[in-house]
Design a binder for these strands. Structure first.
Length: 190
DNA sequence: CCCTGATTCGC
DNA sequence: GCGAATCAGG
């Protein structure tokens, strides 16, 4: 496969869009992420959106800014003080925002943070359960999904065991369903 | 262990 | 120009 115009175009688009090299490679097909990165460099767009020129030094306080950015768009702060809820059943928000560099002038592009319990999510869980590694308690590590499958009281019980995403306890699919937004407050049925 | 991009260098 | 191997980090 060669770098046709279309493929390069898609590459540029996705790269500037903040997609990772591996994702781009997957999308393009027949290329590895290395190929993508290599191409990115050759194209000279290593930098994700023409970010401010790296002054060689890393984040210097720089009291004097001779050539200040025309429009220092401040990223909308998300002052979210850690509010520990004493006794409430609410999933702890991962609060992991993608640190994507956004060209000045644009607010926040794609923010798939919206959690929504969709049938897809549940279906996804079913899928994952089918491909789960079915590891035992002893096999659990920091990087294995700890999502329990089955009934602990029966022999049909194991853990997902698929690779977790980041520092989360579950794999991607399970993280999705683990942090469901609290559905409407359900009255304590008693 | 999973992932990310950056760089090198034989092709 | 290409990209696998490697490096350097999270």
């Amino acid at each position: 496969m060669s770098w046709t115009d279309e493929r390069v175009e898609l590459l540029k688009k996705m790269w500037n869009d903040g997609q990772s090299a591996s994702q781009i490679a997957k999308e393009l097909g027949n290329v590895t992420r290395n190929a993508v990165i290599g191409k990115v460099h050759r194209l000279g767009l290593s930098n994700r959106a023409g970010l401010a020129p790296v002054a060689g030094e890393e984040d210097e306080p720089e009291a004097q800014a001779p050539a200040p950015a025309p429009e220092p768009v401040e990223v909308p702060p998300a002052p979210e003080p850690e509010i520990e809820e004493p006794s409430t059943q609410s999933a702890a928000p991962p609060a992991s925002n993608r640190r994507a560099i956004i060209p000045a002038g644009q607010p926040l592009p794609p923010q798939p943070s919206a959690n929504e319990i969709s049938p897809e999510a549940l279906a996804s869980v079913r899928e994952v359960e089918k491909s789960a590694k079915r590891i035992g308690l002893m096999e659990l590590t920091e990087r294995t999904c700890k999502w329990p499958i089955g009934d602990p009281a029966t022999e049909q019980f194991w853990f997902c065991g698929l690779p977790v995403q980041s520092g989360k306890p579950y794999c991607e699919a399970h993280v999705g369903v683990a942090f469901q937004p609290m559905s409407s407050r359900r009255d304590r049925k008693r």
